[in-house]
Design a binder for these strands. Structure first.
Lengths: 335, 335
DNA sequence: CTGTTAGCGCTTTCAT
DNA sequence: ATGAAAGCGCTAACAG
């Protein structure tokens, strides 16, 4: 065991634990001499402070809790990467807790953070604001990401899915598409639902309600393949596809090509998220790009800010606007 | 604050904190009646147990520490996904600590885990076994992943890079390649170094030492592009490329194609790792595939096993053998 | 079955 | 400058 405690160190240095603590933490009032002795004793005993105990005593843990859904795909991985980057820079550790989908698990995950973290980053697109408002511990700073809406209590940082979806559709239309399919994300997922809403409104506005076809997907590769099969079988006249995420777009595009509907000429395709994979496929995938790592960084920074500030927290909502990135999959020369 | 403590609950239920604790933790000896009262009091006060305090008292945290390098790329993300999955299944939380490369930071990251975790998963390909042996807390169960070698003290779970690299080269040779370039990973990285070693030995054995060309890379996309440029400029007669990871392979392949060296006919290309992206590029990338998520799962399970067992831990080494996955990028009809 | 008491390892008044 | 002692919130003997 690295089981040397501060008492052992104190004893060996022949001082009180109080002095040992002060010396170890660079407190002002300690004689250079005693400090020296304590440091040496610590080294000799291979002392490593027990951070759990310190947290309890100090009431701060230097840890941020992150509640998140399954890690499949690059979406959350990228966000985590940003969070991790910012956390590392500030010397914070990350406590991860996974809610595999359900609201019950989200609640558990949140409760499991109590007493171990100084703040919470909650990504729970399956769960609504009201639920979060009810379950987030009252005194714990928290930022809500990707939720359906602000709960009116916690700062929120969200993606402007509606605007993004509308822009995607507009782009497809600009390329000459007149019969557009939307491969959706799972119902009940906030991002998916709002992308769908944006799709509908843009279609109605730009082409009339008849022009839009919705094909149910769930963000997975498999559902992208599935969507392509359905298009091939039932909607051969589709000339544009807007998928709710890049993974489905990629899979759909590949499967469509097998059925000899090729992008961009037979069908123009655009995804959403802008994950790295999108640029490597052939043809390269157009997408509504999000700087996910940056989103993560910003969320962490904002959390740190409210953790430190004394003022009451305002429940602001920060919107991240997706950026249209046109690549080969939707770019038509003659458009 | 969700600042109701167990004392508040006890007071409200008119019992001692001991009874409150017992009731809340489903201990045997509590009257249904008092248990009921305690539960109600807890609910009324919106009590959430302080897990930090519980850990200190119990000497167990139900948390596993994960020390890892930067999250760039899919390699570590996939491993984390596996770890997370297994952890969630066992009701464990994950405490992440990032060492951005350096040994100093690795040491810090490890120390920062003290008193907060029940076991450690260490992925630190930049650091050697001896270093880990010196720095891993003595009493804390730990599993070392991707290290240069076992430190003789901790169980290790590693990738058989040498065998994998050799098989990759053999495959390229079987496709008729006689002048093969290896885009390496960064020096000092255990995986990279052993992949390079495997490359060398296979080349010497199969084609003679002249046939192998090494191009320095660092696992990044940029270095893959760079490698391609150097091949185009300096080694146009290369007919096979073995990249030390998939990211470089993908980038290299794309850049080579721009210079009209196309896979698989002009040049056969194979990567390493088998990350998801490899299957979506065109042509699909051949690779030495690793089930990274499974690796993570197994590591966690093994850690849990040694955490629970009483017997002294054996410093076993588990080897994960990469599997040759032949896709279009290296598959030649006439070979 | 329940309450009292003593910690877990550390920090931090409060005296000295 | 240093030490004694109180506690952070919880669990776990040990008595009753």
């Amino acid at each position: 065991m690295s089981t040397a405690t501060i008492r052992d160190v104190a004893r060996r240095a022949a001082v009180s634990v109080a002095s040992a603590s002060r010396a170890l933490n660079n407190h002002a009032s300690v004689t250079p001499a005693t400090r020296q002795r304590v440091i040496e004793a610590a080294r000799a005993l291979d002392y490593v402070p027990h951070l759990g105990a310190r947290s309890l005593s100090r009431g701060r843990s230097n840890t941020i809790g992150v509640v998140l859904p399954d890690l499949f795909g690059e979406f959350f991985s990228e966000i985590i990467r940003g969070i991790d980057y910012a956390a590392h820079r500030r010397g914070l550790q990350l406590l991860l807790s996974n809610m595999h989908g359900s609201a019950d698990e989200t609640e558990l995950a949140i409760r499991a953070m109590r007493g171990r973290v100084d703040g919470l980053l909650v990504m729970s697109p399956q769960v609504d604001a009201e639920f979060l408002g009810r379950n987030l511990p009252k005194g714990l700073p928290a930022i809500v990401m990707n939720a359906a809406a602000s709960d009116g209590t916690h700062p929120t940082i969200a993606i402007d899915n509606i605007a993004g979806a509308r822009e995607a559709v507009a782009h497809l239309v600009s390329q000459g598409c007149i019969r557009i399919a939307h491969v959706t994300g799972p119902r009940g997922n906030a991002d998916a639902d709002s992308r769908r809403a944006g799709f509908r409104s843009a279609i109605a506005e730009l082409l009339g309600p008849e022009a839009g076809i919705e094909i149910e997907g769930d963000f997975s590769e498999a559902s992208g393949i599935d969507a392509a099969r359905r298009i091939l079988a039932q909607n051969p006249r589709v000339d544009g596809v807007f998928a709710a995420n890049d993974m489905m777009a990629v899979a759909c595009m590949a499967t469509l090509a097998e059925g000899s509907m090729r992008a961009p000429d037979d069908v123009a395709i655009i995804g959403f998220d802008g994950v790295p994979i999108a640029q490597y496929v052939t043809p390269a995938l157009s997408t509504m790009a999000l700087n996910l790592a940056d989103l993560g960084e910003r969320a962490l920074e904002k959390l740190v800010a409210i953790t430190q500030s004394e003022e009451p927290v305002e429940a602001t909502t920060e919107m991240l606007k997706p950026e249209l990135v046109i690549r080969a999959s939707s770019h038509r020369r003659h458009a």
